[in-house]
């Protein structure tokens, strides 16, 4: 299939698929970008926080679900499960930062990165031991028959994903840009020392950043789980791609992460369809994008050039 014999409907279809995928990447990418903003390091364990959060959501939802058969109440349970899982992930993020990253804040650059890789491996394998390597499934909270608009099919899940993504991103943007706490987060990522001189509790701001990023990742994980399955290594690839999205948009930049996520989602969808890249090599697209963007504009689309002072 090439670009020329593709119908408008198909194009729109892929656009929708790409945007939903991109929305999820964007949610995860926000966590990477925010943490990078304040601590200048990649939280390798981000994908594993996502995975554990999703398991939490799954367990909570499954145990609540049996209490009712009313679809509206089940949907409410789903939302409750999601919120509980988000709180759980936020706490997990805070704890991980306290144990594995905080002692290394003044260490050479590679130390926290290696520590993060360690945390990621521990969590991944620990959950394989605890929950088994067999993948689990979210039992759909509601009917997922595709709806048809002018030959374009959209599943209710896709609609849900888009709605959740939009709500969360708007909330985050409002929080960061217009609230006092948001201003403090930005100040902390700009310059920790000066921020602390201005009376900002830097440790608290870092914990807050981890909490928000982790909660968003957990949310993305549950949204992924609606379409796919829950298994111990689910966070790894999703995390890596979201990281690439963050780099594409400009790491440290919140709008950039959203933009990067959408771009990557679209590129992956259209790469398979239009360029005819085999499904097995789909993951290659993201990594090629990463290497290309690092070559052309290492600071990303919206990123500022950070110069080392000599």
């Amino acid at each position: 299939m090439s670009l020329f014999n593709i119908s408008i409907q198909e194009l729109a279809q892929h656009l929708i698929n790409g945007l939903t995928l991109g929305g999820i990447y964007a949610l995860i990418a926000l966590g990477y970008t925010m943490v990078y903003g304040v601590l200048k390091f990649i939280n390798f364990a981000h994908g594993e926080i996502l995975m554990l959060g999703t398991y939490c959501g799954l367990f909570v939802f499954n145990s609540l679900k049996t209490n009712s058969s009313n679809p509206i109440i089940i949907f409410a349970f789903f939302i409750v499960a999601m919120l509980i899982a988000m709180i759980f992930s936020a706490m997990l993020g805070i704890i991980i930062e306290k144990i594995a990253y905080r002692p290394l804040r003044k260490a050479p650059r590679l130390a926290p990165l290696l520590s993060a890789i360690g945390v990621s491996i521990i969590l991944m394998n620990l959950s394989a031991v605890l929950f088994g390597t067999k993948s689990k499934k979210f039992d759909y909270p509601f009917d997922n028959t595709a709806l048809n608009f002018l030959g374009i099919s959209i599943t209710p899940h896709q609609i849900l994903i888009m709605i959740v993504c939009i709500i969360l991103m708007v909330l985050l943007k409002v929080f960061v840009d217009f609230t006092k706490l948001g201003k403090a987060t930005r100040a902390t990522s700009e310059n920790q020392k000066v921020a602390s001189l201005m009376g900002i509790n830097v440790d608290f701001m870092i914990s807050l950043t981890f909490a928000i990023g982790s909660a968003l990742a957990c949310c993305a994980g549950i949204l992924i789980a609606l379409e796919y399955k829950v298994y111990p290594t689910m966070g790894t690839m999703a995390g890596l791609k979201a990281f690439i999205a963050a780099v594409v948009g400009g790491i440290g930049n919140i709008t950039g992460a959203m933009l990067g996520g959408l771009i990557l989602g679209l590129l992956e969808t259209f790469g398979v369809v239009i360029l005819g890249i085999p499904q097995g090599l789909k993951d290659t697209i993201a990594f090629s994008v990463l290497i290309i963007i690092l070559l052309i504009k290492p600071s990303g689309i919206l990123g500022k050039n950070v110069r080392e002072k000599v």
């Binding site: 890789i117 491996i121 394998n125």
Partner: peptide, 14 residues
């Protein structure tokens, strides 16, 4: 094994 590797990385770094 893998859990052990992870622990080694974290503990050694700290």
């Amino acid at each position: 094994n893998q859990i052990l590797f992870g622990l080694i990385l974290v503990l050694m770094m700290i």
